[in-house]
Design a protein around this nucleic acid. Structure first.
Length: 286
DNA sequence: AGCTCACCCTGGACGC
DNA sequence: TGCGTCCAGGGTGAGC
């Protein structure tokens, strides 16, 4: 035994590399297309006020941005700017399909577009959401996020944010402190940096902080380069339904019971930290 | 300040 | 076999 049960749970977490992969594809393929219709089958996936269909119909996609794990859709209608944001949470997916293609599983919201294409929002768990936002609301939402690890985060800023007396893994997952890091990449970064997930963030030495900074950068960059982490058939897919190629680069995530890849003789363990499944080598990570 | 827990929701796992 | 119960998990918010 030794391997902790994964339960066949359909769990995957789109994080920065996955959401950025989706963003790049959406931006490329939606730009210039006009919304002809929006069909909402699950109203609970729509947040905020206003009729999303009335607001978005005749809107033209101008671009898709990303902040943390949030996708920001910019449209233009009657000379005015329109925005909606979307969070994939655990199991959300955007898929670009042709009109008439077979319905996708858990397809809850469908945008009909001008070139015979459809943008579909699918979500098994229905934790994800879409929300129309005003310029002011958007500004407010974006202001709540910490710096982007692959963009504006410098070592000095990273280190200066390790002041709280909480488990370093919890800090990495706090979107107000660092944005875009989720469970998979937090586990992987801590393993690379050889830091125990429960170490209090304010006890890291400057050397450890620098190692962690580099590790975060490395795992996120690698994940993005390989278009996201897909660990099983049901997990992450890009907008065309294709899996990412980053799973082979994982060292600890969902590898409880396996030999540590550092060949230290240790075994990958699973524990809960802040209610999240946490994988680490107790031999390497101190 | 930081912790725990409930909530949102679904479908496997598990118990009887 | 089959039905009921438990539970994960990102983010948010309440209460301690």
């Amino acid at each position: 035994m030794g391997s902790s049960k994964q339960g066949g749970i359909l769990a995957y977490m789109p994080e920065l590399p996955e959401v950025e992969t989706v963003r790049q594809d959406l931006d490329k393929h939606l730009k210039g297309l006009v919304v002809e219709d929006v069909v909402v089958k699950k109203e609970n996936l729509i947040r905020g006020i206003g009729n999303i269909r009335e607001i978005l119909v005749r809107g033209k996609f101008v671009g898709v941005r990303r902040r943390a794990k949030l996708l920001i859709f910019d449209l233009e209608k009657d000379g005015k700017e329109l925005h909606f944001v979307a969070h994939l949470k655990m199991t959300g997916r955007f898929l670009i399909r042709k009109r008439g293609d077979a319905k996708d599983e858990y397809q809850h919201i469908t945008f009909t577009l001008t070139n015979g294409q459809e943008l579909r929002f699918c979500d098994l768990r229905q934790f994800g959401y879409l929300q129309i936002v005003t310029e002011e609301e958007l500004k407010e939402i974006l202001a709540g996020y910490g710096p982007e690890p692959l963009d504006d985060l410098k070592l000095s800023d990273f280190t200066s944010r390790l002041t709280r007396r909480i488990a370093v893994k919890k800090l990495l997952l706090d979107q107000a402190v660092f944005s875009g890091i989720g469970n998979i990449y937090a586990n992987e970064a801590l393993f690379l940096a050889k830091i125990h997930p429960e170490r209090l963030a304010n006890t890291l030495s400057s050397t450890e902080a620098e190692k962690l900074f580099e590790a975060v950068n490395e795992v996120l960059s690698l994940g993005l380069k390989h278009r996201g982490t897909t660990t099983r058939d049901e997990s992450f897919r890009d907008v065309f339904g294709e899996p990412g190629e980053n799973a082979d680069n994982l060292k600890v995530y969902e590898k409880a019971g396996q030999q540590c890849s550092n060949k230290c003789g240790g075994v990958v363990k699973k524990m809960m930290v802040g209610g999240r499944g946490t994988y680490f080598c107790e031999n390497c990570q101190r």
